[in-house]
């Protein structure tokens, strides 16, 4: 028996909006520690890892480890029917081939039940070691979203370079080039507006902007985004989910052959 009750149902709505265009079908894994997902896009160039810890749910019952295969587009369609202030409860009986999403309005005067068929998805999970990164950039997520959007109107790849001056985002295309430098500025009065750079050594990597723009769909989840970079490793773009966990996007670099 699985019953997960999330008072802040809007978090789950935002998570699906963030991943439904990157990944079509995925397995949600439920265990005592929490509700998680790891999936790659169809080209295996990007990977998303989601964790919602059990403590973040008002009620978390998961009798035994369970993996539920879902079509994320269909799941997003059902979650769109939940109000932003609704409480969302996920329910699944052992051995059943459906999952139920229950939406309760804050005043409990409207209760909705949406039932969706589960799918069999044989997804291979990748082992992702916790790594030491050459550079970690923490910046306003709205700023990062704006940069990716602006640069993608000029070119289709972005070079992200971190030096002691700051982090530089560069692109080039038929009409010309663009360079955006964000300097460290932890003097701002609001912490969520600070740009903080930790660097052990300079790093410069090239990525496809199409995927970066897809990741920024997670912006509504957190006012801060962190970019973790190491030479010749995928970048990790992480949006923390308030007191619950995180959504991490990994993107393989484009490397000079």
């Amino acid at each position: 028996m699985l019953e997960l009750r999330l008072v802040q149902g809007s978090l789950l709505k935002k998570v699906l909006e963030a991943i439904k265009d990157l990944v079509n079908d995925a397995n949600f894994d439920c265990s005592a520690t929490g509700f998680s997902l790891q999936a790659m896009d169809s080209s295996h160039v990007a990977l998303v890892a989601l964790l919602l810890r059990s403590e973040g749910f008002e009620h978390y019952r998961c009798d035994r480890n369970l993996s539920m295969g879902m079509n994320l587009g269909n799941m997003a369609k059902m979650l769109k029917c939940a109000g932003n202030d609704d409480i969302i409860t996920l329910k699944a009986d052992d051995g059943s081939d459906t999952v139920t999403f229950m939406f309760e309005s804050p005043t409990q005067d409207k209760i909705s039940d949406f039932e969706m068929k589960l799918m069999d998805i044989d997804s291979e999970h990748l082992g992702i070691p916790e790594a030491e990164y050459h550079a970690i950039v923490r910046m306003p997520s709205s700023e990062f979203g704006r940069i990716c959007k602006d640069l993608s109107s000029i070119g289709d790849t972005v070079v992200i370079s971190v030096t002691k001056e700051g982090v530089k985002f560069s692109t080039r295309g038929d009409i010309g080039t663009a360079n955006i430098v964000c300097r460290q500025n932890n003097t701002v009065d609001k912490p969520e507006e600070a740009t903080i750079i930790e660097m052990t050594e300079p790093v410069s990597l090239t990525f496809a902007l199409r995927y970066m723009n897809s990741f920024t769909k997670a912006t509504p989840l957190s006012s801060i985004v962190t970019l973790s970079l190491s030479s010749d490793l995928p970048v990790v773009v992480e949006y923390k989910i308030a007191e619950m966990g995180y959504i991490r996007f990994y993107l393989a670099p484009k490397i000079e052959e």
Binding site: G127, P129, P234
Partner: peptide
Amino acid sequence: KLQQKKMTGFFDKR
């Protein structure tokens, strides 16, 4: 020529 790498080239299947 820039070659787009894949995630499976960096992390092993569990």
